[in-house]
Design a protein around this nucleic acid. Structure first.
Length: 549
RNA sequence: GCGCCCGUAGCUCAGUUAGGACAGAGCAGCGGUUUCCUAAACCGCAGGUCGGAGGUUCGAGUCCUCCCGGGCGCACCA
């Protein structure tokens, strides 16, 4: 970030010296091979119109002008590109800037303290969380943390559907398990929830209630609905806690109805002419806005559909003062998302208020169990089991290490490994190795005080090894990586951390830090920077940065 | 049938948002390395007509069209 800013400033200076107007954006890239330079720009290609000269010629002129800059050495024009290399002094300064910021390094103010909500998981309380929910939980939590790092005031929210048909089915399924526990041959309802997880709850209810609810009637329905939802939510919350995910707000569908929000939102849609009646139901005019079909908002029995409630829920989010809302959802909701967005547009909410982070599904490979999951059929692998088997760190990391819109193959065998083949250990082990060096440094009296004021005073000029300079350049990228990762791409943070570790590990094996005279404090300062970024990055992923392994 | 997403090395994936320099990583494969801060490591080699065919462009993995393969959706379910 520091280095790119320096390069941009240098380029603007060179342009004005040449009498060429600066374009609004100055593109900075990384050359394909490090020997070409630290950074590069294809500026000359963009200026062909203004200058009327061939790119290589413009690049040549720029390069000549830039070589006068004190931060730069060896500026070259190659095939129309301008390749820049920084003097070590500039890199040392970059490291100093990082160390001075300490724990704040990477934080930005893009959000300017505005309110942003991330809604995720929002799993219906009809069963335990599955592996699929795990991806959503990790994605949402990491995105929320990223936005928070970028200066947004973030609310993590879980929407739970505690009404409707599926809950009735669940309640009746639980009732059947309860009757079974009493020795009755009560079958599960048609299309009911077959999973084993209701059996122990049914047994427990049988013990405490005895024969109090012999028949499935209105009273039993009310009691078992509440019981079932409470129990399922307890299970879900336990698994989320084990996964290190906390929510600030839980919104229940029932609350939205009670507050009259659904009715009010429907009226507003009607007022704006977006609704028509057919076959006793109310439909939204979506086709005339280019969507594939008109969805039902209110069924002929008068009950609102999930979509209707969802629209009202988002209006509520807007009223609650969120400037931006991000919903993390599976790919199967794509159609629904278009409908909600359209409704919000009709209702006059600002464009871009709502964004969906859509993710594809997870396939678990290398573990006994079913691949295709269905909560209703009782075919699934519990997220909680996976966390117990592999640990929170590994599961969280694996769930966000691929871009959301790609199908995720969760490699169980790899996840189980405690060698550096496992990317999580690879990154964590880099942190551990640095921690170990600092422990040794403390013993031998070469300890560098952790206070920024002291680290920043260290003479960094012994840092001349290419690997050392490469490490600084990597550290410098961290804030940009965070900003990019917040664009629904947390996998970029994983990739970055693995890359940083991949520069560090060989360096560690080759170069000794302790007992090297004046090189020692300089190297410790560098490692303090690496440790800082590793710790910060892992913490944003919700993964621990161990001192020892 | 229609819509959305994906198709890059044997495997798992980056790179596609803003088109640029001989296409990258990890694992698996092959071959090396151990006085010294944890070898739970490090170094090297090999491996690809970027699903296919057209097109736009000085330049396409990246943009457009068509086709093939996989996933998801197309409910008065959520």
């Amino acid at each position: 970030m520091y280095l790119e800013a320096r390069a941009r400033a240098a380029l603007r200076g060179a342009l004005s010296a040449l009498g060429v107007p600066s374009p609004g954006q100055i593109p900075i890239d990384r050359p394909p091979r490090p020997e070409l330079g630290d950074l590069s720009t294809r500026l000359a290609y963009l200026l062909t119109k203004e200058t009327g000269a061939p790119p290589q010629e413009v690049a040549q002129a720029l390069a000549e002008e830039l070589s006068k800059h004190p931060d730069l050495e060896d500026v070259r024009a190659e095939q129309g590109f301008v390749n820049l290399r920084f003097r070590p002094q500039a890199l040392w300064e970059a490291l100093r800037v990082i160390l001075r910021q300490g724990e704040a390094y990477g934080r930005q103010d893009l959000g300017k303290g505005r309110k942003l909500q991330v809604e995720f998981v929002s799993s219906n309380p009809t069963g335990p969380l599955t592996v699929g929910h795990g991806r959503q939980a990790a994605l949402g939590d990491v995105l929320a943390e990223l936005f928070s790092q970028l200066g947004w005031e973030v609310t993590r929210e879980y929407y739970l559907n505690d009404e409707g048909r599926q809950i009735d089915l669940l309640a009746q399924s639980l009732w059947a398990r309860y009757r079974q526990a009493l020795g009755e041959d009560q079958p599960l309802p048609e299309g009911g929830y077959q999973g084993d997880y209701l059996i122990p709850i049914g047994e427990e209810l049988a013990r405490s209630w005895g024969d109090r609810y012999p028949n499935w009637n209105e009273e039993a329905q009310g009691v078992f609905r509440k019981q079932a939802v409470d129990r399922m939510m307890r299970m879900i919350k336990e698994d989320l806690a084990a996964f290190g995910v906390r929510f600030d707000v839980w919104t229940r569908e029932g609350d939205l109805h009670r507050r009259g929000l659904v009715r009010e939102t429907l009226k507003e849609l009607q007022r704006r002419g977006a609704v028509y009646e057919k076959d006793g139901a109310l439909w939204m005019r979506s086709r005339e806005h280019g969507l594939a079909r008109d969805p039902v908002l209110v069924r002929s029995d008068g009950s609102p559909t999930y979509l209707m409630v969802d629209i009202a829920y988002h209006v509520d989010k807007y009223r609650r003062g969120f400037v931006r809302v991000v919903d993390v959802q599976g790919a199967d909701h794509a159609e629904e998302q278009k409908q909600v967005k359209l409704a919000l547009r009709i209702l006059g909410l600002p464009e871009g208020f709502l964004d969906y982070c859509v993710h594809q599904f997870v396939t678990l490979r290398g573990r006994e169990g079913v691949e295709r999951m269905s909560t209703r059929a009782g075919h699934f692998i519990r997220l909680g089991d996976l966390i117990r088997e592999l640990g929170r760190d590994v599961v969280r990391y694996f769930m966000v290490m691929r871009k959301p819109e790609s199908h995720l193959t969760f490699d169980y065998e790899l996840a189980k490994k405690t060698s550096m083949d496992n990317p999580v250990y690879y990154v964590q082990y880099a942190h551990t190795r640095i921690a170990s060096i600092f422990r040794e440094a403390e013993k031998s009296g070469e300890f560098l005080p952790p206070h920024a004021s002291h680290v920043t005073e260290v003479d960094l000029s012994p840092l001349t090894d290419p690997a050392e300079l490469a490490l600084i350049k990597e550290l410098d990228r961290f804030p940009d990586v965070l900003a990019q990762a917040a664009g629904f791409a947390p996998h970029l943070l994983c990739e970055y951390l693995e890359g940083l570790a991949a520069v560090f590990h060989p360096y560690y094996t080759r170069v000794r830090v302790l007992g090297q005279g004046r090189a020692t404090p300089a190297r410790l300062a560098l490692l303090a920077g690496v440790r800082l970024v590793l710790r910060r990055g892992l913490s944003i992923l919700g993964v621990s940065a161990p001192e020892e392994m």
